[in-house]
């Protein structure tokens, strides 16, 4: 569904965008968030392009993970959270009354920092989300599982031991299994919260390659503290600091020619 209304201009002049509003998958408008009396996000607005990789970078505690968790309403789990502003997924407010949280999370999948496969077999892990929806024949489900594992570049490694415990896999394999598990549900957006930070370099490369392949049909949002990684895989990068959006733009521009001193300092490693 295309956007019906034009976005109001961002209050932060540093956020430069070069894609039309219709190409946005997610739009965040004047979002503020606080845990009790601790503010995590301040009046944040940005649009995330469809079928591209967008990276959030910034120092620890800048709110990038919080922002990511808002996008599929995982912050709902904490009932001390106060929120202002809205998040639109394909033009619909995800916080509107009547929006089924479970349904939203099915459309906006998430992969976490540490691999978290369930204590079940590989097959059952991928089938988990499908079984929740129900209404699929076993044959069809198996097809989707194979497709998901292939998409996550894991099929060749596990096709002979689908019934083995997911915890018997290596860390990198576990993370790809988690991605496959999320893909099987058929999301439109995939949120990745530092997906490679717990992995070795080779596994990291595999995940990055996977991310690049997935953008052909998915919108990806990546939180990372590794700037090389952001530069390698993302199309757009947002730099956050202290819960504020400092600068947002095409990755090339932001890394080679940042408009603000704060951004440049962070990227070049000269932190105040």
């Amino acid at each position: 569904m295309p956007f019906v209304q034009e976005l109001r201009p961002s209050p932060d002049p540093a956020a430069v965008i070069d894609f039309p509003p219709e190409a946005s998958s997610l739009a965040i408008r004047e979002l503020s968030l606080a845990y009790g009396d601790k503010t995590a996000l301040r009046n944040l607005s940005l649009r995330i392009p469809r079928h591209r990789v967008t990276a959030f970078i910034g120092p620890s505690g800048c709110g990038k993970s919080t922002l990511l968790r808002v996008l599929n309403r995982l912050h709902d789990l904490n009932d001390e959270v106060m929120r202002k502003g809205e998040v639109l997924l394909e033009g619909e407010d995800i916080h509107a009354t009547g929006v089924a949280v479970a349904e939203l999370r099915r459309r906006v999948g998430m992969v976490f920092q540490a691999p978290n496969p369930f204590p079940m077999s590989i097959h059952d892990n991928v089938a988990f989300g499908l079984r929740l929806q129900g209404g699929l024949s076993k044959r069809k489900r198996d097809d989707i599982i194979e497709w998901a594992l292939r998409s996550a570049a894991l099929w060749d490694e596990v096709k002979d031991r689908l019934r083995a415990s997911a915890w018997s896999l290596s860390g990198g394999q576990q993370q790809r299994l988690v991605i496959a598990r999320t893909l099987a549900v058929g999301p439109e957006v995939l949120l990745l919260d530092e997906p490679a930070s717990a992995l070795d370099p080779i596994s990291t490369l595999k995940i990055e390659e996977l991310i690049r392949n997935l953008k052909s049909h998915l919108t990806l949002v990546l939180v990372t503290h590794n700037m090389q990684q952001a530069a390698r895989v993302s199309d757009y990068t947002a730099f956050l600091q202290d819960g504020e959006l400092v600068e947002y733009g095409p990755t090339d521009t932001l890394f080679t020619n940042p408009r603000l001193r704060r951004t440049e300092n962070y990227i070049t490693g000269r932190m105040a």
Binding site: A100, E103, Q133, G134, G135, L136, K140, I144, W147, G186
Partner: peptide
């Protein structure tokens, strides 16, 4: 993208 049959709204409710 596999053509998974869309979950029925009844089931969802």
């Amino acid at each position: 993208m596999p053509d998974s049959s869309p979950p029925l709204s009844v089931r969802r409710r």
